[in-house]
Design a protein around this nucleic acid. Structure first.
Length: 552
DNA sequence: AATTAAGGCGCG
DNA sequence: AAAGCGCGCCTTAATT
């Protein structure tokens, strides 16, 4: 257990499995990396308040740790866990509640450990660790799942910092050439590149609007209507259905303007340094347990710029993504053997067709997505009865999650992550039907609120459990990759990108096959961790490439 | 001048 | 094509 530094010294408390103190050491914070490296040989589990406050500096000193408990992330899970009475857990005493407010820090090395005042300084990690262990001990049937979840979440915290440390290999010269080829040379600040000017001139001429600002949606809608085009918005997919000479240049302008705003030269200057893109990943940043990211839009890297992600000389990228992860997870979650049978095929959707459940692959896909997201209209809605008939257990699971949400109840993932309580004022008016005012409008909107929340909880159980599979995959893979090489983290095969159901590993070329094997073995292991012996496959699409753009 | 909301679109 | 879920972040418009 590492405790926050006081006057430049860090206390290190040795705890045994029962939580008893075996000893205490103190070390100057500048000597901490060396001490951690020494103790790491015994493979301890490091317990600390928050990985973002400790690990960047350790990595900067070349120290990688095998496992940890991140009290901040574990606290966040437990306080929402129905199995441990989350609210009661957090409210146990004022001290416990203070952990609610602890925010991760931006993991620029150096700054973190050495800030004069840190909200974490007031917290007692030993006490919190004991509270958490006690909460799990009293979680009954849910204890095993929660323990696995907390371990996986903590391992994810290590991966997140390692991803930032290593960075995604990024060729600024390739990116620049790509931009120049698309829009022309970089103009002076504030000006439009040549290609955009040409497209805009065409659109302005066709609309007879010489001063049109195409970046203002309200103005664009006004101008289009004035030209006789009955549009409700300026969204591209709506414009695509219109036949008019202004539309093609406008659509092309929007596409390129978007690329330039999100991933143009400004982005390149701000986010790529020394041949690496280093976004900040935020484990647990999404309610469902998915990661979020901070800065640079890491989880929205457009396919358009992926050619710039290029392995270093002598290295390759191993890109792997889990095929049709959410339906497979749902099959396991619901113990739906018919669906699991389809999930044993490489292409789950085609297998649904082959078994006679639905007529076409497209319909299988939309039907399944509709079941998971709560679609009611279009092809999704039409397929639901077939899905319900062919896969009753899976269907019933998501239906129950939706109904629970509509009642304002909480749902949980396989390992026990709980959905949030609907906010104050949620579905207001629905219980006030006795009011003789009889306001219909609040009732209507309350019903809409309930349905929407039901779609959220329906999706929560699937997306959240898929996130647990992905975390388990990541945690297992991290350890296997470490064993494949020698030296520092970035000298070995190491993770450089993670995107919900997809990973990118940067590796010496000669280890590519071993990495591909490790990626697949880790996926199988994640399936066993979550679903035990239930027969379920998690096939991956794996590509060994020089550039990210060449995968998939 | 600074902050928030809205519209839009990229990713899974 | 969108449909149904979850995000981050850009620009412009509205509000404080």
């Amino acid at each position: 257990m590492l405790e926050r530094p006081v006057e430049g010294r860090v206390r290190l408390v040795d705890l045994d499995d029962d939580g008893a103190e075996r000893g205490v050491a103190e070390v100057a914070r500048v000597d901490l990396p060396r001490l951690v490296a020494e103790r790491e040989r015994e493979h301890p589990r490091w317990v600390w308040d928050d990985t973002t406050r400790w690990y960047p500096d350790l990595l900067a000193h070349g120290v990688r740790v095998r496992r940890c408990t991140d009290l901040r992330l574990c606290h966040a899970i437990l306080r929402r866990s129905p199995a441990v009475g989350g609210e009661a857990f957090a409210a146990a005493d004022a001290r416990a509640r203070e952990w609610d407010g602890l925010a991760p820090v931006d993991p620029s090395p150096v700054a973190t450990l050495f800030d004069d005042v840190d909200p974490g300084d007031a917290l007692d990690p030993v006490a919190e660790w004991r509270r958490q262990r006690e909460a799990i001990d009293h979680a009954g049937d849910a204890a095993g799942g929660l323990a696995l979840l907390l371990a996986a979440e903590s391992s994810g915290a290590l991966v997140a910092v390692e991803l930032t440390h290593a960075g995604l290999p990024w060729r600024a010269d390739v990116h620049d050439r790509l931009l120049v080829d698309l829009v022309g040379p970089r103009p002076s600040a504030g000006a439009r590149p040549a290609r955009l000017e040409r497209l805009l001139a065409q659109a302005r001429a066709a609309l007879d609007a010489p001063d049109l600002n195409p970046d203002s949606p309200p103005e664009l809608v006004r101008r289009l209507r004035r030209a006789g085009l009955p549009v409700a918005s300026s969204r591209s997919h709506e414009l695509e259905r219109i036949e008019h000479p202004a539309i093609p240049p406008l659509l092309e302008y929007k596409k390129l303007a978007r690329l330039l705003a999100a991933n143009g030269w400004n982005w390149l200057e701000e986010w790529v340094h020394g041949g690496r893109f280093r976004p900040v990943y935020v484990p647990g940043g999404v309610v469902t347990g998915r990661w979020a990211s901070n800065g640079g839009g890491a989880l929205q890297l457009p396919a358009q710029v992926r050619p710039a992600v290029v392995a270093d000389p002598g290295r390759v990228l191993v890109v792997a993504d889990a095929a049709q992860l959410e339906p497979r997870v749902l099959a396991g979650l619901a113990h739906d053997t018919a669906m699991a049978r389809a999930a044993r095929s490489r292409d789950l959707y085609q297998a649904m067709v082959d078994s006679g459940a639905v007529p076409t692959r497209e319909q299988a896909k939309y039907g399944m997505l509709g079941a998971i997201y709560g679609g009611t209209r279009g092809e999704s809605g039409r397929m639901l009865p077939r899905i319900a008939r062919a896969y009753p257990r899976a269907f019933e699971l998501v239906e129950q999650a939706a109904r629970a949400g509509e009642r304002g109840e909480r749902v949980r993932t396989l390992l026990g992550r709980g959905s949030p309580q609907p906010g104050a004022g949620w579905a207001a008016g629905v219980d006030e039907r006795s009011d003789e005012e009889g306001a219909d409008a609040p009732d209507e909107s309350a019903r809409g609120d309930r349905r929407a929340w039901g779609r959220f909880t329906r999706n929560f159980v699937v997306q959240g459990t898929a996130a647990e599979w992905a975390l388990s995959w990541l945690a297992t893979l991290r350890n296997r990759l470490w064993e494949l090489g020698d030296g520092d983290l970035v000298d070995r095969p190491h993770l450089v990108f993670f995107l919900h159901d997809e990973v990118v590993v940067h590796t010496p070329a000669e280890l590519a096959d071993a990495v591909a094997d490790a990626v697949r073995a880790s996926a199988a292991e994640a399936g066993r961790l979550l679903f035990g012996d239930f027969p379920l496959d998690f096939p991956l699409d794996v590509a060994v490439v020089t550039s990210y753009a060449d995968a998939g």
